[in-house]
């Protein structure tokens, strides 16, 4: 079994109104020096080892559904895990 951790973030060129609202809130709470907040998504996929080309399957999933390449970037980590 593999655990795939997928991180989806907004492209740098894209404004993040949610991140801006959170940044402003942190400033109001008194935290100094918070210059930028960007909000993204974190997903965990459990994938059974069927001898498939996991790497290319994950890339495919990320490009087609898990992220929108027009406004988002993604990265992922694949971990092998033992299921008891």
């Amino acid at each position: 079994m593999f655990k795939v951790k997928v991180y989806v973030t907004l492209r740098e060129s894209v404004l993040d109104p949610q991140g801006t609202a959170v940044k402003n809130s942190l400033s109001k709470m008194g935290y100094e020096g918070v210059e930028d907040v960007r909000i993204g998504k974190y997903m965990e996929l459990m994938i059974e080892d069927k001898g498939q080309d996991l790497e290319s399957a994950v890339k495919d999933m990320c490009g087609r559904l898990l992220s929108n390449p027009v406004i988002e970037d993604y990265r992922y980590e694949i971990e092998e895990c033992v299921v008891s």
């Binding site: 894209v14 109104p17 949610q18 027009v70």
Partner: peptide, 17 residues
């Protein structure tokens, strides 16, 4: 239609949230 690629671009949250 945007997600399907039948139209170019993407949508995100209203600026005002």
């Amino acid at each position: 239609l945007l997600e399907a690629g039948l139209l170019p671009g993407a949508m995100h949250r209203n600026e005002s949230l």
